[in-house]
Design a binder for these strands. Structure first.
Length: 421
DNA sequence: TCTGGGGTCCTAGGACCC
DNA sequence: TCTGGGGTCCTAGGACCC
C-alpha cells in the first residue's frame, strides 16, 4: 500500500451546475455561463422565464463553463463566445454570478472539511485532500468489524470487505466525501485518489461527471501512460507542442525518453520534472494555508482604445480599476509595495511595467499615482484592448506601524514600512 | 467572430553590495 | 592594470492553471 493517500476533488461543470439548481427547467439543455454583460433571465407574466440564447450575443468575451450537453456540441471553457454561438446557437447563455458560486464553493469545502481537515484550495471548484490518516483509521475499523462478525454487511458493495479488497477503505472514504458534497450543495463532484497530487489530478478527470477513481503506482503503466502528455498538470500548449516535435505524444512516450535529453531540451528544472511526472512521482505536500502574493484588476474594452485619441476614457478606466484594486486590498487587509500596470495591445502582445514605492500603498489615489508612473515607462503607440493594474510585494496592513520610524505620521494612504522599507 | 479575469511560479539580466 | 566571485533585490516576460 502507498505511503500516502491524496485526493483531488473537482466539482462537475461547477458554475453551470449551480445555475441549474436555480433554473431546474434548463436541465438537459445546452447551457453556457459567460460573456460580458450577458442578459439575466426575464420573468414572464405566466411565471416562466425567458432565457437569452447564445445566438443573440455580440461582443468580446469567452465561455466560462458549459454543461455536458453544450460540451457535446463542441462548446468548452475559454472559447470565444461568438465562436461558441456558431456551434450552439440555441444554447442558453447565462451571466456569471460569482457571489453565488463563492457561496456554493464555501458550502462544499466546509462539507469536506468536516470529514477531512487537511484541505488545499485550488481555486473555486477544486481541492486537494490528504486522506492518509483517515483511510488508515477506516482500514483499521473495517478490520475490527470483520474480526467481530463473520458476515460483514456494513457497506453497499460486495467488494467492500477489507480482507478481500485492500482499496475498500479508500473507496469508502471517497464515497463519503462525494455524498457529503451532494448533501451540502445538491451538486456532484469527481474524485481521484492516488498516492500523490499529480496522479490524483489526472484521475479526477476519469469518469466525469460524478466519477470516483482510485489508482496506485502499479496502475501507472496501464491507466496513465496511454494518456496524452498534456493531461499532466503543468504541461500546457507550448510544452505539449514542443514534445510533439520530439515525437512525444503520450505520457508513456515521455516516460521512455532519456531524462538527459529532456534536460537538454527543456532546461534542468523543467526537464527533470517532466521525467519525474511521467513516472507518476510527486512528493508535494497538501498545503492548507498560503498568503496571497498579488492582487489584480483588469478589463478588456468593448473596442480598442488609443492612449492618444482616447486619453480621457483610458484615464477614467484606469482610475476605476485602481479604486477596485484598493477595495480588494482593503477587504483582504493588505498593502502593496509595488504597483504594476499591464497592457494588452490590439495584436495581443502584452507589456507590463512596475513601480516600487518607498512605502506601501493602500489608497486608490496612491495606486493611481504609481500606475501613472508605470504608464510613463510604457510603449503606447499601438491601440490597446486591455488594461490592468496589479498590487505586488504585499504586506499585511495590521503588521505595518501606524507611524514612520522618525515618529511622523505616514502620508495619507501611504503607510510606513516595518524596519527598513 | 478572434481569444476574460484572477492568480502562481520560473527565468534572466542588471544594479548594487561585500 | 586587470582580475574575481557571491548574494540579493528589482524588473520584465512568459508558461501555466482555474
Amino acid at each position: 500500500m502507498p505511503r500516502r493517500w491524496i485526493a483531488h476533488l473537482d466539482m462537475d461543470a461547477f458554475y453551470a451546475s449551480v445555475e441549474l439548481l436555480r433554473y431546474p427547467e434548463l436541465r438537459g439543455r445546452p447551457v453556457v455561463v459567460g460573456g460580458r454583460r450577458a442578459h439575466e433571465p426575464e420573468l414572464l407574466p405566466d411565471g416562466t422565464r425567458k432565457f437569452a440564447l447564445l445566438r443573440d450575443y455580440a461582443g468580446r468575451g469567452v465561455i466560462t463553463t458549459s454543461t455536458y450537453e453544450a460540451r457535446a456540441l463542441g462548446v468548452f471553457s475559454a472559447m470565444g463566445t461568438m465562436k461558441a454561438a456558431k456551434l450552439a446557437p440555441d444554447a442558453v447563455l447565462l451571466p456569471a454570478d460569482f457571489e453565488q458560486y463563492t457561496k456554493y464553493s464555501r458550502l462544499f469545502k466546509a462539507a469536506v472539511h468536516e470529514i477531512a481537515p487537511l484541505v488545499e484550495n485550488r481555486g473555486i471548484d477544486e481541492i486537494y485532500i490528504d486522506l492518509t490518516e483517515i483511510i488508515e483509521r477506516e482500514g483499521a475499523d473495517a478490520q475490527d468489524r470483520s474480526n467481530h462478525s463473520a458476515h460483514d454487511s456494513a457497506h453497499d458493495s460486495a467488494h467492500d470487505n477489507a480482507d478481500e479488497e485492500p482499496l475498500a477503505p479508500v473507496i469508502a472514504v471517497a464515497r463519503r466525501l462525494k455524498q457529503a458534497v451532494k448533501d451540502a450543495t445538491g451538486l456532484s463532484c469527481s474524485i481521484g485518489v492516488t498516492p500523490n497530487k499529480l496522479l490524483s489530478k489526472i484521475c479526477s478527470e476519469f469518469g466525469k461527471p460524478d466519477g470516483l477513481t482510485v489508482i496506485t503506482y502499479a496502475d501507472i503503466r496501464e491507466r496513465i501512460w496511454p494518456l496524452p502528455a498534456k493531461r499532466i498538470n503543468g504541461i500546457g500548449p507550448k510544452a505539449a507542442a514542443k514534445l510533439e516535435t520530439l515525437g512525444i505524444r503520450t505520457i508513456g512516450d515521455l516516460a521512455a525518453m532519456d531524462p538527459l535529453r529532456l534536460v537538454d531540451e527543456f532546461g534542468a528544472n523543467y526537464g527533470a520534472w517532466l521525467h519525474e511526472a511521467a513516472h507518476g512521482r510527486d512528493e508535494r505536500e497538501v498545503v492548507t494555508h498560503s498568503e496571497p502574493k498579488s492582487v489584480s484588476c483588469e478589463t478588456t474594452f468593448e473596442r480598442d482604445l488609443h492612449a492618444r485619441t482616447d486619453r480621457a476614457e483610458l484615464g477614467a478606466i484606469l482610475t476605476r480599476l485602481c479604486e477596485r484594486l484598493a477595495g480588494a486590498l482593503e477587504r483582504k487587509g493588505y498593502a502593496a509595495r509595488t504597483i504594476a500596470v499591464k497592457l494588452r495591445f490590439d495584436d495581443f502582445r502584452i507589456v507590463t511595467r512596475a513601480h516600487s514605492l518607498a512605502g506601501a500603498a493602500t489608497s486608490a489615489q496612491d495606486i493611481r499615482k504609481a500606475a501613472g508612473q508605470c504608464l510613463k515607462k510604457s510603449p503606447l503607440e499601438r491601440k490597446l484592448r486591455l488594461i490592468g493594474v496589479r498590487a505586488d510585494r504585499l504586506c499585511q496592513v495590521d503588521e505595518l506601524p501606524a507611524r514612520n520610524e522618525d515618529g511622523t505620521p505616514p502620508e495619507e494612504g501611504q503607510l510606513a514600512l516595518p524596519l527598513a522599507g
